[in-house]
Design a protein around this nucleic acid. Structure first.
Lengths: 134, 134
DNA sequence: TATGACCCTATAGCGTATACAGGGTCATGT
DNA sequence: ACATGACCCTGTATACGCTATAGGGTCATA
């Protein structure tokens, strides 16, 4: 096999992605279908590797696949205004902020609940009591 | 129809749960199967309502359905030690804490990325640049 | 030639619901 | 007596982002 082409395994190792995940990205339109070898293996080029790296970074930052699809399209049209990019990122940041606030409120409730538990029998358990209807 | 029995719609309205979700809880062993009316409608009793309220409170606090199943079993055996209850709740709290830490780190990265964006054209966009491989 | 690492497709599963199709039942109004 | 519409039933598909499995084919190396 031509040693200069990239197999799916190469892409996987170089980006810390599972092979199945790469095929999943292809099926879902995030990675373009590469050409195939005679033996029907996917034959990737450096551009595919770049694109996959982009996807993985964005996933690490919590962007959804829909958002990443949009970001990729924008990044392919480099003359356009980057306001749309900013909008996607800002919307995502706002969601992350909201999640943090929600989780902190949740944690406060869990703290209250757990700190009351004196760990006797369930019948006296404040945790169960908190969950049970009045 | 006997007006003292509770239909699935009653349970739904009284707990802020969708009807489909109640059937889903039943199928997944969280709510016991109620008896049926002649017309094959589910006929709930007050105990079912209490149990569903318990489930919804626990869900609001972010417990998984598995954890809730365990909590329900524990709450049905009121003489047992409540250490197991405490363990479930504490484990959940730890996960929530970890999620908060992770999300705060994520937000810091998003802040860094977004604050650099001067909203010109995509070609100069710091957001796209951050995501792209070097 | 045989082994084992790698690749292929197709399908099902995870968790927590939500939605929809295609039908049956019930209370109410005329 | 019947029509309407609100409600209920089952079964299946969908969402998200993968992960796993079955059952097979290809490739490099010993």
């Amino acid at each position: 096999m031509n040693s200069s082409i990239l197999t799916i395994g190469h892409l996987a190792r170089q980006t810390g992605t599972k092979v199945e995940t790469i095929r999943f990205y292809e099926k879902n339109g995030l990675l373009p279908e590469p050409s195939r070898t005679e033996g029907n293996y996917r034959a990737y080029e450096p551009d595919h590797l770049n694109r996959l790296s982009f996807i993985r970074r964005a996933r690490d930052l919590g962007f959804s696949l829909d958002q990443i699809r949009a970001l990729l399209t924008l990044s392919d049209n480099r003359g356009q205004s980057c306001a749309a990019v900013d909008a996607i990122a800002s919307e995502h940041r706002a969601k992350v902020e909201k999640k943090i606030t929600d989780l902190m409120a949740l944690k406060a409730e869990l703290d209250r609940m757990i700190d009351q538990c004196e760990c006797g029998i369930v019948d006296d358990c404040r945790i169960i009591e908190t969950l049970s209807p009045k």
